[in-house]
Design a protein around this nucleic acid. Structure first.
Lengths: 130, 130
DNA sequence: CTAAACATTGACGTCAACGTGAAGGTCAAG
DNA sequence: CTTGACCTTCACGTTGACGTCAATGTTTAG
């Protein structure tokens, strides 16, 4: 498939796709006319990339982790990278928990009518910033 | 407290604190000499802001949600904002699940030695991009 | 032949969340 | 009175992930 079709299939702009390639996140063959040519697996890879980018990973990290699944690459440093992905997941989980705590504080504030001024109802929350 | 002390208390740079104020995320009184003056609640508010920023919320969203807890503000649109926070939390949870799926795919690829080329082991994953 | 739709490579613009000076006012200590 | 720590407001620089425009080539439809 060519870039337009991949774009439509993934929702990524053609600009984004070229950017991904520039960053080493995806690869492409070239047709005789110079057009990029993608195999069907590209769809999955691009979606993978989009997910991880949306989750806050940098393309520099992705540049290392994506070839592990996308290219005909051998493991080597992949266990390290797996650890990294796990780390990111753990971070996300952690943040999610903290947000939940804040949200519950908000809920309590709204429903329970805790003093609007002075003690905000937040100051003493245990899981404060690192 | 003045800005330096708040900075030390929260870990946010003074620049960041002025930026937060500029964006309407925090407020301050002014001392006779023009220096910013913060009450003790500011610490909690700033930590709140930092958490949500770290979690990927934009300051534009925060500009709306923070006054609900930080200022002497009445509920009004706060139920809406609560919904928004919940939405964000749900998004995070969703992303976390997708990442977990990807990670498991990676793990399977690495341990089970699924064909390195052709079927990537990713293409058919259920929870693909929106 | 010509227009339209698709592709190519630059290369500059953007936006957020600050960093990093510049140029200066304020205040307690010596 | 001067040094130094602290504060003030500009205002430009930075990084990442693209948007957007320019100038050009290619292929298909009429």
């Amino acid at each position: 498939m060519r870039i337009g079709e991949l774009s439509r299939a993934t929702g990524a702009s053609t600009r984004a796709l070229r950017y991904y390639e520039e960053q080493g996140l995806i690869r492409s063959e070239r047709l005789p006319n110079g057009y990029r040519d993608y195999g069907p697996e590209a769809v999955g890879v691009v979606e993978f990339v989009q997910d991880l980018l949306a989750a806050g990973l940098s393309s520099r990290v992705l540049r290392d982790v994506v070839p592990c699944v996308g290219g005909g690459h051998e493991s080597t440093a992949c266990s390290e990278l797996l650890t990294m992905v796990q780390q990111v997941r753990d971070d996300l989980l952690d943040q999610e928990r903290r947000i939940r705590a804040r949200r519950q504080a908000l809920e309590q504030y709204l429903t329970g009518r805790r003093s609007p001024r002075g003690s905000t109802g937040l100051t003493g929350v245990p899981g404060t910033s690192a």
